[in-house]
Amino acid sequence: MNNFIKLFAFVCMIFSVSMVNAQASKTATVAPDGLIVLDASTDLASEYVANISRFNFASFQEASTYFDKYISKTAGRGMSFFFDIPNQKMIIYIDAANQGLVPRKASGQVTAAELNFFLNEVHKGRI
């Protein structure tokens, strides 16, 4: 009986971890012209995954060069980019508590829509 409880607890733990991971990662899209848009339909997540297969990058270097304007403008400011070339994915990590991309408001948390505005300004070359 004791072993059964332990096994049940272990299964629950694995299940909850996988649920947390599933919730933490949200979708981002990359337009044909390279504009990155985070899913703004729900609260800001710490991780977004975007499909970059349309660009058919052959190497990490190629992908990071293409997205360099975002990488250079966000370096050390709470947003970081990683590339999974075999799976043609881009993973965007966001440190909402320490981000320096959009200004802090006197009330309220940073939202995905606000970060999308920043990404759009970077894309247009205005920042």
Partner: peptide, 12 residues
């Protein structure tokens, strides 16, 4: 203003 963005290295 440049909108609700932090200025970074270059803004106009």
């Amino acid at each position: 203003s440049p909108g609700a963005v932090c200025m970074g290295t270059n803004v106009r």
